[in-house]
Design a protein around this nucleic acid. Structure first.
Length: 592
DNA sequence: ATGTAGCCTG
DNA sequence: CAGGCTACAT
């Protein structure tokens, strides 16, 4: 992988340039400098770009242009101002990002338009050959700048003028052959038009082209003309391919930037409701309204880890704001006891929701963000917030590998935060739209249903409505709840059958010797499934039911009843009579 | 026809 | 956990 830089428009690699190859470049340039005054100007620009830009461009290319690292994924959020803070353009740091973008595009184009090994001398010669065309361009530029000073309300022009002061635009910018800027809305079309013109006209007239474009495209035109001039050394199919690739890349990058921009600039995730939300906690850890979210920089860093469930839960929606306060929180009642766990591992807590967001790079980025928090504290919180929100966005379209982070957190905090209100689906953004609805079951409802299963395996529709009265019951919702308990039962009976057969294999003949205690492997399996966080005191009655069920299975299997396809139904009939009443805590809580 | 339970599968 | 499917009950 070669990284182009400004000084080598035809593809001299930045790697080589940044090392020992820089001297030959300069030597050749000095030699040619004596040949004309034009060349002197060129040399100044080359040195200017060398000292101020190249270092940044190299890092830019390494970080952002390496497709092998991107692996085809959407480019990650960039912080050009940080990366390019040393560029030193007179526009200041706020423009360094623009310089980076320009340089990035330039690097892409140049990297593809020439062989990586092309020597700087060739580049300088080519630039020298282009000097005539450049002079012509300068004249054109002057004419067009005169037009610019008139009425020009185009968005592109204002942006360009803002980005690049007129002097820079008319002088250094063009001559330095830093031709392009990032695509804005509708500019792909301009590029396409430009591209078509370049394709159809080998000896294009810049004025003709410019007359069809607004003034904001002048610099683009200059740059693309340079590309076109360089393309004169290539075959037409190669140019077509090049143009197609450039346009493809720019389009995809523009989309990516738009997504980043939306989630950076839109306060949707932070202040959409005007109240503190779980999303607030994720994105504004230092300013959580409830004060539950504290960031300490000592040993016990309390950091919100967004609980992202990527498993299929197509009907599980993010809870609306007005229900946030109604969150099902386990109360320390005689029957529902929050286990005394002053500190729990995130690894454990995040397992609660399974399949957390965890793209490898995302994890690395999160680690970096966490380290920033621990190192510098509030100063970097803003950056962390931005980074975090962006990370959440990226995780929407990324992999679902397990997420592991061993940071100690406040269990009460996790009780709120790790309830997966924020569901991020990895497969389908269209599917995700469901989670924006204000109706439907949330993952906290799911957790609650699992806890209810400890009391009732066959809840009636009445019980369901009492326990989930915060949900607008529709046929769909009802079916989903029924399906949930059906799945719970399925798992329950599968475990029972498995352990029953295992007991028989081990030679258990007396069913009375079969017991299900809290330390039994069977109970652990069940508890892991229904009470993964282990923050719920499972009622003894459930242990009794499990024990009875296990014995029923052992008896049935030992009698060979499992030959009958419907042999389990008899057991089901027995178990369904063992349901208990669901505690009042499940019903009386506002969301219970 | 509709609703529910259970089985199978991804 | 959800979807598809079948069987069964109402």
């Amino acid at each position: 992988m070669y990284y182009s830089c400004n000084i080598c428009p035809d593809g001299c690699s930045a790697e080589s340039f940044s090392s020992s190859q820089s001297d030959p470049c300069r030597a050749v340039s000095v030699a040619l400098q004596k040949e004309s005054e034009t060349m002197k100007i060129l040399q100044k620009q080359i040195y200017y770009s060398n000292s101020d830009v190249c270092s940044g461009l190299i890092s830019s290319s390494q970080q952002e242009l390496n497709p092998s690292r991107d692996n085809g994924h959407t480019p990650t959020k960039r912080h050009p101002s940080a990366v390019f803070s040393s560029c030193g353009y007179p526009e200041g740091d706020q423009n360094s990002g623009h310089e980076a973008k320009r340089a990035r595009v330039e690097s892409i184009i140049k990297g593809m338009t020439s062989s990586p090994g092309m020597q700087c001398a060739d580049m300088v010669k080519n630039q020298y050959k282009e000097s005539d065309s450049m002079e012509e361009n300068d004249k054109i530029q002057e004419k067009l700048l005169q037009r610019r000073t008139g009425v020009s309300g185009s968005r592109g022009h204002s942006q360009m003028t803002k980005k690049y002061p007129q002097s820079y635009l008319s002088a250094g910018f063009d001559k330095m052959d830093v031709p392009t800027k990032t695509l804005n809305d509708g500019e792909e079309e301009k590029y396409q038009t430009l591209n078509n013109r370049l394709e159809t006209s080998q000896t294009d007239d810049c004025l003709d082209l410019s007359s069809e474009l607004d003034s904001s495209s002048i610099t683009e035109l200059q740059g693309w003309k340079k590309v076109k001039l360089k393309n004169n050394f290539q075959s037409k199919p190669e140019r077509i391919k090049l143009m197609a690739n450039v346009l493809k890349f720019e389009l995809s990058r523009a989309v990516s930037r738009s997504v980043d921009f939306i989630f950076e600039s839109t306060p949707l995730l932070q202040t959409s409701t005007g109240e503190g939300t779980e999303s607030d906690a994720f994105s504004e850890p230092s300013a959580h309204k409830n004060g539950n979210l504290q960031l300490s920089h000592g040993g016990n860093t309390v950091v919100p880890i967004p609980d992202v469930q990527t498993e299929a839960l197509s009907l599980v929606v993010q809870k609306p704001q007005h229900e946030k306060d109604d969150e099902f929180v386990l109360q320390p009642t005689p029957r529902i006891i929050l286990s005394p766990k002053p500190q729990v591992s995130l690894c454990q807590e995040t397992d609660l929701c399974e399949d957390k967001l965890s793209e490898k790079s995302h994890f690395t980025a999160c680690q970096h963000a966490l380290s920033c928090l621990q190192e510098v504290g509030p100063v970097k919180l803003a950056a962390f917030n931005t980074h975090w929100s962006s990370s959440k966005v990226r995780s929407k379209v990324n992999s679902r590998r397990p997420y592991a982070q061993t940071v100690s957190v406040d269990p009460l905090l996790l009780e709120r935060l790790c309830l997966p209100h924020v569901k991020i689906e990895s497969d389908s953004l269209m599917k995700n739209n469901l989670y924006m609805l204000n109706e439907g079951l949330t993952t906290s409802h799911l957790k609650k249903a699992k806890l209810m299963f400890f009391y009732t395996r066959y809840p009636s529709s009445m019980v369901l409505k009492m326990c989930f009265h915060d949900v607008q019951f529709t046929r769909c919702i009802t079916s989903q709840l029924i399906k949930w308990f059906s799945n719970f039962r399925e798992f329950f009976y599968i475990q029972m059958e498995k352990f029953a057969r295992h007991a028989l294999i081990e030679g258990s003949t007396d069913v009375r010797s079969l017991t299900v205690g809290r330390e039994s492997e069977l109970f652990r399996a069940l508890n892991t499934h229904y009470n993964k966080a282990n923050d719920f005191q499972v009622p003894d009655r459930f242990l009794d039911v499990a024990e009875i069920t296990l014995r029923e299975f052992v008896i049935a299997i030992s009698l060979g009843k499992d030959c009958d396809p419907s042999w389990k139904k008899a057991i089901y009939k027995v178990i369904c009579k063992l349901d208990s009443d669901v505690p009042a805590e499940f019903k009386h809580h506002r969301s219970v």
